[in-house]
């Protein structure tokens, strides 16, 4: 029996060890994913807690022969979307605010990971989610479209714009170095 199956079994039987293992195995991954999506520590924690609560409520209906992460990623993504729609106020989920555009061309030949994190944080949330699901989660374009309930063409457009925006922010025509 693999790890996820035994976690599900233990949780169903109400053993504390099951919940402890569930948290041990996935808390960090869920939190980091939520944080990447919403860029806010406290709200990422609330989201994380809600993801696990929903998992516990659904534990009897989960298929113990399947890995848990796709389920957790889906709940995390759905909750993050709901959250972002609530929070957005006047900010668009899929347009780049003017202020985020670089005023002049980049001068450094390469970027640090902190630069990348900062540039990611400035992207419209939906662009950032699509980018993360592609390059961190290795989902196909079709899988991303299904997960976010968007047309595949929209996913491609967001990916193109997000990557181009990062190139405008981080890229340098002068160098090919990266670290």
């Amino acid at each position: 029996m693999d790890r996820d199956a035994s976690i599900i079994q233990l949780c169903r039987q109400g053993h504390r060890a099951g919940f402890a293992r569930l948290v041990e195995a996935y808390q960090e991954r869920v939190y980091r994913t939520a944080y990447t999506f919403v860029q806010h520590r406290e709200d990422a924690q609330d989201l994380t807690q809600e993801v696990f609560l929903r998992t516990v409520r659904a534990i009897d209906s989960l298929d113990s022969s399947r890995p848990l992460w796709p389920w957790l990623r889906r709940v995390t993504t759905n909750l993050a979307l709901t959250y972002l729609k609530q929070r957005k106020g006047h900010l668009s989920l899929d347009e780049l605010p003017e202020a985020a555009l670089p005023t002049s061309g980049p001068s450094e030949p390469s970027w640090t990971r902190v630069d990348l994190q900062r540039a990611m944080a400035e992207l419209p949330p939906l662009w950032r989610m699509v980018l993360t699901l592609r390059h961190q989660e290795d989902l196909t374009y079709d899988e991303i479209a299904r997960l976010l309930e968007l047309p595949v063409g929209t996913v491609k457009t967001y990916l193109f714009r997000a990557r181009r925006a990062l190139r405008a922010r981080l890229g340098s025509e002068g160098g090919d170095g990266w670290r």
Binding site: A20, T33, T36, Q45, T48, Q136
Partner: peptide
Amino acid sequence: DLGRAAGLAPEPPQEPEALADLL
């Protein structure tokens, strides 16, 4: 680099034990 960007997110602030108890 994007494939490794998750490592830049902060650590989860909640104690694992507290979350397990809640669950």
